[in-house]
Amino acid sequence: MAPDTQTPAASIDKLEQALLPKIETGDVELPLLPHVASKVMALASDADADAAKLSNLIHQDQALAAHVLRIANSPAYMPRSSVVSLQHAVAMLGINLLSEIAFTASLKNGAFQVPGHEDQVKLMWRHSLASGSYGKEVARMRRVNVETAYLCGLLHGIGKPVILRTVATLAKTLTLSLEPEILQPLINGYHTRVGILIADKWGLPKQVAEAISYYQDYDHATAFRQECLLTCVADRLSTHILSPEELPEDELREHPVFADLNLYPNDIDQLLAGKGKILTVVNAMNL
């Protein structure tokens, strides 16, 4: 059946009416936390974790192992010599960094897949990667935990691919065409609510769950306000470097979150000057 030709506002309205009850009743297909990602998270809090355990874990998934090796050899990590095995990668990059790479690659394969919408998912993924990487840089500047900042940035938009998949299915059922101007308001409006459901299902650390919930509305955060502020800054910086036409530099600098996180104008200059490093990581992880 040919899609209905309706105004974008009417289509958004119809889709919203179908989407909202699904979210409210939890009738949304949430992704599972990828097996390796979950094991890597557990390994991070395991005092007995070692290089052999990590490389054995990654070896369980051959496709993932290949991705990890490719990333470890990319310009983002500048190995002095070619990394030929996972154990070699652990020795070169360290357990922490390799765990981060494995978690990230595993997340992409498990949670950022929407057949038929590959281009949009790619944009979401690049935004998540840039936010994670910027989260680390902002955390370094504020002298707070870098690892948590990365997770908050990487996962703050984890609800977006789920909303995309759900809305795409609904559009097919309701025979509505799905243009970007219809899709974007729905993703922007509802991804946080789905993100909260995912954080709960995956048992993510409270700091990350709070950042997903409140990064756009940090004044209402009930705890971990700093992580929420930091994620908001990372989100805006990554939007700016990936789509400067969407968020020009002047507009970026005017956002009160920078002052709220006590970032002075020269701190923002320094963060913007580091965009080359962020883009290198994004391109390396762009699976």
Partner: peptide, 14 residues
């Protein structure tokens, strides 16, 4: 503040 922490970043460790 990632692989080598100081007394500041240690306070926000996970």
């Amino acid at each position: 503040h990632e692989h080598i922490l100081d007394s500041d970043s240690l306070l926000s460790t996970s």
